[in-house]
Design a protein around this nucleic acid. Sequence first.
DNA 1: TCAAAAGTGTTCAGGGTACACCCATGG
DNA 2: CCATGGGTGTACCCTGAACACTTTTGA
Lengths: 226, 226
Amino acid sequence: MTDYYSSHPRFFVSVDCIIFGLKDGKLNILLTHRAFEPEMGKWSLMGGFVERDESVDDAAARVLRQLTGLDNVYMHQVGAFGRIDRDPGERVVSVAYFALLNANEADSELLRARGAQWTPVDELPELGFDHPEMIEKAREVMRRKFVTEPLAFELLPELFTLTQLQTLYELVMAQPLDKRNFRKRIAEFSCIEPTGQIDKTGSRRGARLYHYNPAVSADTFSFFKI
Amino acid sequence: MTDYYSSHPRFFVSVDCIIFGLKDGKLNILLTHRAFEPEMGKWSLMGGFVERDESVDDAAARVLRQLTGLDNVYMHQVGAFGRIDRDPGERVVSVAYFALLNANEADSELLRARGAQWTPVDELPELGFDHPEMIEKAREVMRRKFVTEPLAFELLPELFTLTQLQTLYELVMAQPLDKRNFRKRIAEFSCIEPTGQIDKTGSRRGARLYHYNPAVSADTFSFFKI
DNA sequence: TCAAAAGTGTTCAGGGTACACCCATGG
DNA sequence: CCATGGGTGTACCCTGAACACTTTTGA
């Protein structure tokens, strides 16, 4: 029975995380400055090898936790990347995941310690490996899922204004949206509930703060057609 | 530099192909009866290990070619499957691909020789490994891409009738479509060209045969909203 | 002559899209 | 008092959906 396997090669298997967060009204991703070979000195996605005692999904969650200190973060597989020479050092097959989190919740100490930095998606530096391709694919998958699933609330803080929500959709969809039409649509979703609170930081007048109630949404889904 | 890698384990990496084809007016997939361990005696997807001199994508294309004799078949990655115990024999990370082909073009000698058999998707036997999960995911991805890309023509013969095309969409979308609305939509696509020919096998009256011209379609895309 | 599939237009309603002005407040 | 962002309703058009009968021909 072992013969079935033994004539074949084994490879390192890694995971790479495309971690999205909102920062200064822009969509950012977490990049690290590599302090070791291969690709030392270049910017790259946060990654790590899959170990014996963990599934590939678990490895991705671990890498994310080690970098941000966060658990229970929304993650989704983007796909496997398996070009022969994608890693200049060794043959490595990598599985990419994207993660969505509230940038303020990430442990900034840990980020600093690991040389990680939030970078706007439209100002990415040159990246090592096949990471540009991974990011491209991740944005594509993210955009698609954004339309049909309530992913926005993974990126926003607990309480948010409708302007923040709209801006986020405009960022991800890469197109401007009509304010009145947007709010009309939102009003139909009972899962987006107004709290009594007002945010005074964004304007003189102040804006109503909403929060997302996943319990309500459960029955009312397919999300946006914007 | 090697230290960076060497402390980590290596795994077998395999590919599994979900091969879709039309057979007797139904959507079928190719299954093989396993003549060896692990999972001997069970039905399974056609798979194989990734070798040192090929990318993961290439491995999938090779496995497909070895089974069907076909090259240049439409294939698309479904994702990586990395549960620890997904293969009872060894730790194997597998990357699933779906393929679309015209069932009549597959080399039936090869299929017989390898114990492969077309099986309707709604009559699948019990399958080994995590193959049911892979098939589920593959159908989902396929359905999604079917709406926005001209994948139907990968499954149909070179010349096809509009009834065949509609039946295929109904199969994949799992819902009945209105004949007149369907044909109205088709008429808008200049890439679906009538040939002068008539198919007399499906009806007494005979039906016009069409063919797909990818050159024309290039500029006119996003496909169906059905 | 009849069974069986091919082929063909119109009507209606709902939803998406476009659009402009008043409100509240801090400085 | 004014600059800044917050908040609100209506009208139109287009597209998706529903719907039934005639044509052709082999058996």
